[in-house]
Design a protein around this nucleic acid. Structure first.
Lengths: 175, 175
DNA sequence: TATTGTTATACTCTATAACTATA
DNA sequence: TATAGTTATAGAGTATAACAATA
């Protein structure tokens, strides 16, 4: 079998497909978690707290790469729903340790079911071996680009100060 | 070789990886086009006009699935940069035919170069055969989910009226 | 004085609705 | 009256900066 080189722009098309399908998957997941009264940032934060309980808001916001002021609103939401709890650290009363409640653990379970169902539905057109191949390829891409496991890059802070151009750099729809 | 079934949640992890990597790619592309003074919606609109010139704003907004009022602002931006032109239809003076200017065609070329360079950079960890496999898998996923070729789902209108729940359904970071 | 968390504020993006002109 | 485009307005989402409590 002869190897034909890819046509010019092939990589661009592949990359575009990746953002297109990725956005579709994300939108589908967002629609499902919204039925639980949450949005994707909520789900990601809840997950971060569940997997590393007892940490301060500062630590969590640093891990997820979001602003402390934004974290406050998200934690407020989750606490208002009784899914997480703030506990002041007695030795340093400035720190608020974040933990999930039993209701939060249940919610995590529901989110997991939703995520599995969503993944199965979205990947339905691929056979199981093909899904494994896709998983392998995506894992290598994620590793190469330094994407922290379980942390969605949508959390990353945007707007660089160091850029020579210094354009607003809006991301909008393509995120 | 024995076939092992994937562990539970494997599909969910694959789907998450897809959104994660897709968001990374989209952000990288957004950063590059911002150096041209555009954002991804600008680029997508310019592309739509270039590939189907002479159509009305109504037609374009329907194709891309965005609101007419939003299209006005985007067209204003592109027209202000001299990349597209509005021409009133003499037979029905309500219609504005959209066409790209020579500068717009040049910009399309620049965007194409950027997209190719970005794609090549993002896919660098994969061999050419692997990129072809990835392209094939993604194409089948896109086809199955009815994603129009070249139209990013970020354009789709959000907020459904028909839903039984009727939640805001914010997409935010995960898009 | 420095740091954690919070609140206040502004800015961008997007969506809804009112408006103008053409038909 | 209906439609294409536009403008005005309001609503989220997000970022910056000021603030109070604690160290």
């Amino acid at each position: 079998m002869k190897e034909f080189p890819p046509p010019p722009g092939h990589d661009a098309q592949t990359a575009f497909l990746l953002t297109q399908v990725g956005s579709q998957f994300a939108g589908s997941f967002a629609g499902l978690v919204s039925e639980l009264g949450l949005n994707p940032p909520h789900a990601g934060l809840l997950r971060a707290i569940a997997f590393g309980p007892g940490r301060s808001q500062q630590e969590i916001s640093a891990q997820l790469g979001l602003l402390p002021s934004r974290l406050v609103a998200l934690v407020d939401d989750l606490e208002g729903k009784g899914l997480v709890k703030r506990t002041r650290n007695p030795t340093d009363r400035r720190l608020h340790a974040l933990t999930i409640t039993p209701a939060g653990a249940e919610m995590m379970h529901d989110i997991g079911r939703i995520a599995s169902a969503n993944g199965a539905e979205m990947l339905k057109p691929l056979s199981r071996p093909e899904r494994r191949v896709l998983h392998d390829l995506l894992t290598r891409l994620a590793d190469h680009h330094g994407l922290a496991s379980g942390v969605h890059p949508g959390y990353r802070s945007m707007g660089r100060e160091d850029s020579t151009v210094g354009r607003p750099g809006t991301v909008s729809a393509a995120d």
